[in-house]
């Protein structure tokens, strides 16, 4: 399986990549290549030009700026796992990256590629929703900041504009009283999720001040289970409330039936992943 013919260019800077996207019609950026190249081999994608952004140093690395962690779009999954900043300040991202694919794929696959690719099975979009992340995008018109909430519009469909490139992801550091939870059900190591659920909860004493429950692979794109969040927000969360929220998670699911399961099974598994993540997040928030 070999992709159709294409021209190959290396971009040397973010601006160079944007210029090249403009100069070559229907061109595509090549990041880790672990979603794009498989699609090109299967001829689901036949871009006439690839612009390789692997050599752009400004797109790599993780840094702390006050209460915000800035993650370059070309940071690989293994770099997320190994990052001391993330281990200390954003355990959710480390846990999620550990459950993406396998060691070889994690050496190439990037967080930016995962966020913008648009496969509902990608894990990072839901993680970005749960963390209330901000996407930094740069295009011919300059830079803009876009909340993750609102970016994901459908399968292979998001708010990335023409000739725009995702530069950086910004996530808040975990604070006292905040807890992260992550659960992903997969058939085997290296598989995409049957269902996954990252959860971030913020406690005020015993009361849930805010909660974000996101879901992977149970809708055309990553979603927040807002009705489930509404059940829990402002309350002291107990088992009965978690069951009510789980019912709302099931109602929010709209999965495609495939080899990973039918609609009912996937929706119920999403609810179970959410239950586990809520409990784990609460435990972490209570310290």
């Amino acid at each position: 399986m070999i992709p159709a013919e294409f021209e190959y260019h290396k971009a040397t800077s973010i601006q160079d990549a944007i210029n090249q996207l403009g100069a070559h019609e229907d061109s595509k950026l090549l990041a880790g290549g672990h979603s794009l190249l498989p699609m090109m081999k299967l001829r689901f994608a036949e871009p006439p030009t690839l612009i390789d952004i692997n050599g752009i140093e400004e797109l790599r690395g993780i840094r702390l700026e006050g209460d915000t962690i800035c993650i370059g779009a070309m940071t690989t999954e293994n770099e997320l796992i190994e990052s001391e900043i993330l281990q200390q300040h954003c355990p959710l991202l480390v846990e999620a990256a550990r459950l993406v694919a396998d060691p070889q794929v994690r050496n190439r696959g990037t967080i930016g590629g995962d966020v913008v690719h648009g496969d509902p099975g990608n894990d990072h979009p839901a993680v970005m929703l749960a963390l209330d992340a901000t996407l930094v995008l740069q295009g011919p018109g300059g830079e803009r900041q876009q909340p993750a909430n609102g970016f994901f519009l459908g399968t292979y469909w998001n708010d990335l504009q023409e000739h725009e490139i995702l530069v950086e992801l910004r996530v808040p550091v975990i604070r006292q009283g905040v807890g992260h939870g992550y659960s992903k059900l997969k058939r085997k190591t290296g598989d995409y999720a049957v269902a996954g659920s990252p959860v971030v909860v913020e406690l005020d004493g015993d009361v849930c001040r805010d909660i974000r429950i996101a879901l992977t692979n149970v809708a055309p794109m990553a979603i927040r289970a807002e009705a489930a969040e509404n059940v829990l927000r402002g309350k002291v969360i107990d088992d009965a409330l978690i069951e009510q929220a789980a019912a709302e998670v099931i109602a929010a699911c709209d999965p495609a039936e495939d080899l990973r399961g039918d609609i009912q099974y996937k929706s119920h598994m999403a609810a179970e992943m959410a239950r586990r993540s809520i409990r784990a997040a609460l435990q972490q928030a209570r310290g």
């Binding site: 190959y8 290549g33 672990h34 190249l37 692997n54 070889q104």
Partner: peptide, 27 residues
């Protein structure tokens, strides 16, 4: 597998294990 799953094509590239069926030679 030719589809980035099996690892039979694993090589060591700049000190990292990668699946050489999913890396372009130009890279």
């Amino acid at each position: 597998c030719e589809s980035s799953h099996c690892g039979a094509c694993t090589v060591d590239l700049d000190g990292k294990s990668v699946k050489s069926c999913t890396v372009l030679a130009v890279q």
